[in-house]
Amino acid sequence: MGVAVLGIMVAVRVFAPPASATSGMAAAARDFVSLSISVIIESLPFVFLGIVLSIGVQIWLPEGFLLRRLPRSPALRRPLLSLLGMLLPVCECGNVPLARGLIVKGLTVAESMTFVFAAPILNPVTIITTQQAFGGGNGILASRIAGGFVIANLIGWIYSRHPGQESLLTVQFQEECSLEDHAGGRNRRVQQSVQLFFRETNAMMPALFIGAAVAGLIQVGVPRDVLVAVGSDPVRSVLALMLLAFVVAVCSNVDAFFILSFGATFMPGSIVAFLVFGPMIDVKMLALLRTTFTAKTLLQLTLLAALCAAVLGLGINYVV
């Protein structure tokens, strides 16, 4: 069946209408499609990589391999988990399936939150690109690293005190967790890997495509000059760039280059708020995280991350 479906899709692509077919579309509609496709094409390899890593963690790593190496004390585990992105430099899209895999292997929900929020910031690619964009001397890089670390650990600590951690997860994902049974020989593990890929893509792909469409729509619909107009106000500039981070959904590996263009207009605290909040929460991430966390949890997480990033940004604007 797979070859038949593949054949149909290739035929659709080969016999698709020529470029002139879109000449009747409004320019904004064409750009909406182009921007949405761009989000998909850019994110897909990272999502695939995240799923492959998740398969590796869940099925191919020996039982307890990861958890045995982590400290027993939650207060030490969370800081260590927030540095896991140093070893697995996947951007935020790929971290969601990886975090799901880590939960299945025994991480608590709170610990997975610390990982998923810290890893896109505390990874070598993000650090290098931020350093290239802003340099190391003006405090933006240090504030981003420290801010990301502290906020991710704070969120993890808050949710570690939640009495019913499983209730933070969607029913579907709780069912996924209960399916975990990865004993067996090599052939059995290959089968399990394919089945896990099947389940993970079933959860991730619709979320990615919906998130990409929403991101494309907002990009076409919200004029940038509306946001830029508030750039010199210490409070509104922070809120405006956090809103921009939420809307544009740029990959954390390169968001520093993107926001550099606003560096002359916006205050430093707002730049840091953008660089810290964006990798944690944006429209695309919300769609992906919804595969795992309940809507109520996501709303709380969004407000919490936004509040922390805003406090960080305002602190820099007023104190520095």
Binding site: P17, A19, A21, S34, L35, I37
Partner: peptide
Amino acid sequence: ALLVLPPSTLSTATVTQRG
């Protein structure tokens, strides 16, 4: 979006929107 519509670049609508 991905298979039927031909690929296209961003247009003047985005130039106007982004400045």
